[in-house]
Design a protein around this nucleic acid. Structure first.
Length: 212
DNA sequence: TGTCCGATTGGT
DNA sequence: CCAATCGGACAG
């Protein structure tokens, strides 16, 4: 692109597709961009995601059609941001997928810093850069994402995605989602996706082999 | 209003 | 292995 051109934001159409698993997989390699208070670009490449398939998915907040103030935004059309608070101290970043009234989402579990890493270091207060954004709670701290981002539109100017890198099919691994042991048969669905071998993929106590 | 517990993290 | 820490969901 020419000097001075702005990178293109990922179009809303990306999130309007009916196949949420494909969206979760295709998010790997995209660039997450969130300007800080001063307008500096903070950005990172998405390296790990999880899909939550709405009403049918016991692990999803909208399982069985549950619709509350907290998860209301997940019933909106794809391309909106769903942020929720968990464990008394962390936020989790999700993107709403599919058409209106289909409360599917993709959780962003880990990213690899690209721009603004100095600011991320300040916010995370950790020596090891590997700990900057290698988990769903960590990346929200690094990017300053809190409940104020809930409901944001990814076509707006507070948070968005850009094309960055297109992984080869072989580079993308999948396996069971993390922290949903209560979800019965859904606990073992291979609906987590990550960039194989990437060092920023979140640490898990039961690391599962990739499967395809 | 009361109780239970979570789509995590960091330190022991 | 376990504490931190608190809002959401649901029962009563």
């Amino acid at each position: 692109m020419k000097t001075g051109d702005q990178p293109a934001k990922l179009a809303t159409d990306f999130f309007l597709r009916a196949d949420t698993l494909a969206i979760a997989r295709d998010l790997i390699g995209k660039l997450l961009v969130v300007p800080d208070e001063a307008g500096n670009r903070l950005s990172a490449m998405i390296v790990e995601t999880e899909a939550y398939l709405g009403e049918i998915d016991r692990a999803a907040h909208s399982f069985g059609g549950r619709r509350t103030a907290r998860n209301e935004i997940t019933y909106a059309s794809g391309g909106h941001v769903y942020v929720f608070f968990i464990y008394g101290m962390y936020f989790q970043l999700n993107f709403v997928c599919g058409p209106e009234d289909s409360p599917h989402v993709c959780l962003i579990r880990a990213v690899e810093p690209v721009e603004g890493i100095g600011i991320m270091r300040e916010r995370r207060n950790t020596k090891n850069d590997r700990n900057l954004t290698s988990g769903p709670g960590k990346l929200c701290i690094a990017f300053g994402i809190d409940r104020a981002f809930n409901g944001a539109d990814l076509s707006g100017d507070r948070i968005w995605l850009e094309d960055f890198r297109t992984p080869l099919p072989d580079e993308i691994a999948c396996g069971p989602r993390i922290g949903i042991d209560y979800a019965g048969e859904f606990a073992t669905k291979p609906w987590r996706f990550w960039l194989g071998g990437n060092r920023n993929v979140s640490a898990t106590k039961s690391k599962v082999k990739s499967q395809r």
